[in-house]
């Protein structure tokens, strides 16, 4: 049970927040993270159109051999992505709480510009508190 990292992707596919919590995945440069986030944004857009039953919310979990990626898409198009180990069960509830922290510490902060990288001490603190608790 481990949480490796958290990404926040804005509605245009740009990575606005990226943070690692535990080792276990390859270390990437910030540019590589940007490219991956953009790719995920594209994949997500495709998966949301693949459903034969009409509109879909798109991919929610992508699993690999050693990790899984849980995606929360908000009503405004912002995506929260949590990279965890396969056994991690609380990913979805953590993402809900991350969304709450984002609404509080980022959207209510007058010094944050929408769609721009998140540089908010309050958000960092809330995330540390949250994921620190989530890991047990």
């Amino acid at each position: 049970m481990a949480i490796f990292g958290l990404w926040v992707i804005n509605k245009a596919g740009g990575l606005v927040y990226q943070r690692n919590f535990a080792d276990g995945l390859a270390q990437l440069t910030s540019n590589e993270y940007l490219v991956l986030a953009g790719t995920l944004h594209g994949i997500h857009a495709i998966t949301s159109r693949l459903s034969p039953m009409g509109p879909s919310s798109g991919a929610q979990v992508i699993e690999g051999e050693s990790f899984k990626m849980t995606i929360l898409l908000t009503a405004t198009g912002t995506k929260f992505v949590l990279l965890t180990s396969l056994a991690e069960l609380s990913a979805e509830s953590i993402l809900q709480k991350v969304h709450e922290a984002y609404a509080d510490a980022v959207m209510k902060n007058p010094f944050h510009t929408p769609e721009m990288p998140i540089r908010s001490e309050g958000f960092d603190l809330r995330i540390s508190f949250l994921i620190g608790n989530g890991q047990m």
């Binding site: 509080d104 510490a105 209510k108 902060n109 007058p110 010094f111 908010s120 309050g122 958000f123």
Partner: peptide
Amino acid sequence: RHISVPKDM
């Protein structure tokens, strides 16, 4: 409560 003032201010 929800305000984080940037370092340069």
